[in-house]
Write a protein that binds this DNA or RNA. Sequence first.
DNA 1: CAATGATGGTTGGTACTACCAATCATGTCA
DNA 2: TGACATGATTGGTAGTACCAACCATCATTG
Lengths: 149, 149
Amino acid sequence: MTSDDDALIDGLVRSAFQVMGALTRIGAEHDLSLTQLRVLGILRDRRARMTELAAHLGLDKSTLSGLVDRAERRGLLARGRNPGDGRVVDVFMTPAGHELAERVEEQLRRALAPAIERLDRGRRDDLAGLLEPLVTPPLPVEARPAPRR
Amino acid sequence: MTSDDDALIDGLVRSAFQVMGALTRIGAEHDLSLTQLRVLGILRDRRARMTELAAHLGLDKSTLSGLVDRAERRGLLARGRNPGDGRVVDVFMTPAGHELAERVEEQLRRALAPAIERLDRGRRDDLAGLLEPLVTPPLPVEARPAPRR
DNA sequence: CAATGATGGTTGGTACTACCAATCATGTCA
DNA sequence: TGACATGATTGGTAGTACCAACCATCATTG
């Protein structure tokens, strides 16, 4: 890591703020905070318990209680009992939640389109390929497939 | 813009959350919110009036009042009169603010290093080059240099 | 040049985000 | 069956962000 990477870091930070800006704006149109958007993103394809969700988001459990409260009041999420463990509260998306998530995703596509279209097809694929290793953490040692010998 | 871009959008969103996560964490270590970090970033190389700053951040003027209040109380920013216009309040960074900004930048470098180092030198430069057009909005028509004819 | 209106900031009120500490219910284990 | 651990909620505090109302200063114009 040398200071030659300054341009890269600058680009990453700026693109991050650009994406977040778009997400914040789109969220605001639907009265959703960035965090609620993240929750919606996570719950799209699975149900999760409160603590699990909090850990995933790096938030305190108590923060999530309020978050889910409000989303539940709006009919986007629902709480359910966990059959295996009476202490656990499972959270999952309602049909309305799914529908909203769908719309937000579409809006994000639209919002990022002008920027993305400044790159031609080949460069878009290059960029996607370069971002991939950046965002995919290497597996922790225990979970790594055994090296061939 | 086709749905082939889904992988790219996914990469952009994930890298955005990764960068924001790092920034949020580093900010928290210094009791700074993401927004305060942004303010610090903007004021590193210039002084700005409140309204200008608010517009730049996409925030309401009143939000900035409180933000600057707190940063000022901590000795990171200072308010000054504007010689040309008595209504205007200029904001600028104190030496302590500069020092903190420096430290945060260094920490961000360190935080992103593991991810960045998953790419070799050439790929890092490629990535920086691909992000550049993405984050640099084309000049608005009026400001564009006159086309040669 | 005084009245009017526009501009720049702050203040007050509300809602949400996020944390911590305390609490309550349920599970687990000695 | 206690005692302890775990999962979630509640209450309290600080910060973020909005809007509306307000005060001061500037700019116009009658």
